[in-house]
Design a protein around this nucleic acid. Sequence first.
DNA 1: CGATATTTGTCCGTATGTATA
DNA 2: GTATACATACGGACAAATATC
Lengths: 256, 256
Amino acid sequence: MTNLLSSLTAPAEDAEQASERASFWSRIAQQLADAIGQGVYRPGERLPSEHALAEQFGVNRHTIRRSLAHLDQRGLVHATQGRGTFVEAFAVDLALGKRSRHRQSLAQAGLRGGLQVMHAQEVAANADQALALQVTPDSPLLFLQVLGEGAGQPLHVSERYFPLPRFTGLAEIVQASGSITAAFAQLGVADYQRQESRISARLPSKEVARWLSQSSTRPVILVSSVNLDPQGVPIEFSMAWFAGDRVTLTVKHDEP
Amino acid sequence: MTNLLSSLTAPAEDAEQASERASFWSRIAQQLADAIGQGVYRPGERLPSEHALAEQFGVNRHTIRRSLAHLDQRGLVHATQGRGTFVEAFAVDLALGKRSRHRQSLAQAGLRGGLQVMHAQEVAANADQALALQVTPDSPLLFLQVLGEGAGQPLHVSERYFPLPRFTGLAEIVQASGSITAAFAQLGVADYQRQESRISARLPSKEVARWLSQSSTRPVILVSSVNLDPQGVPIEFSMAWFAGDRVTLTVKHDEP
DNA sequence: CGATATTTGTCCGTATGTATA
DNA sequence: GTATACATACGGACAAATATC
């Protein structure tokens, strides 16, 4: 039973100086990250169990858990109870511009993807939504919860609000076509633009983390934006959570 | 010695059903978050020690540590060895547009802030930098490491590259004025625009976390961008790390 | 300045619960 | 149902950084 930590502990025990003074857990995390980087463990693959890693590295299982939690936070792996700890895949580049479209962005990246309506409901506008969409509070809105996929994995989830009755039936078209743009087109909005986007980084709620199939300790990018029709009338207010380290958003400031 | 967990454990012990089945650590984290939200613990204030909290809540210190780690990740508190665990302050809104300026953004938010040069050095352009700045590889560049402050705390750190010899002496002007815009102006660039920005969310390196005075388990927004002079010539390539939950970036897509 | 107490950080060991294969 | 694997929680010990006297 080889002790992979021997190369780590040896210097600290031989000489009291120990140039490598990092903690066990961080050194093990680094070694695992290197192994992933070198393809020893490939995306989608399962790592050895915590118990096995603890034996391999000659440390307690809790120390391994600390290392794995760190890698989970950094997005390299993700643990699921009862299944194991799996290596994550890599990032996708998405455009964030006044005229960017989800499907188009993915196509440019050589990927296929679409939108899936998880939930649709009619709601009454609250103050924020009313302000953003320039309607009176309590106006009827269509509320959609949408999952955006690409490269075979969830890239973002969003909550979107559309004024009613203008966009009655939009949910069904989005569900059928997998595209907001297509749904807008079918309802007479041939073009639209994003007004502004507000961006911050957060740790996701448990629910959002679950939808994105990621740990709730991995960051997400939160983007709030408003879309306008060609007449400048707001047609959509959305809050989207992007898997922070699976996605890079590119803002083009000089778009037409 | 009151056991603050009594209200938590009671239902689980009274009836086996226990509608609140969340873990101790998450419920304690929620209670602490609520206390912070209600101003029981104010920004900058120190929380009771882990030992004290463990006694208060009637749980093991490790359970408290789990709760605090969660709040640390979410940015509500930050722990420092030997000092304690402190409540963090709140977010600042920054503009991210083709013509946004750090100082101006802060002024709009009613805050004062400036840039501080942490490190300046002449370097040779690598492939990425050369491509972004449209110079030949190994061309001389001025490299600046800059800390951006606002509201009395670090908001972002950045690594910036400027072509030489055009911007010789820029570091000293930035240091003296606390402003990149002022330095550009003094060197004959009266105006400039951002070409594009690439945004992702990451967990910071230990170094970046230290500069931002934040935990390395709290997310940062990474923004890479290129600035152009009025003739469209690249004058700056930068990578900036924003304290993810102290900062909201707003992208204006319809700026002039 | 040094000595000491406090506080967080790391690590081990053990036990039990819960989700999945 | 059984076995496996991760999740939670307890207990103890010492190290490292900081505050305090």
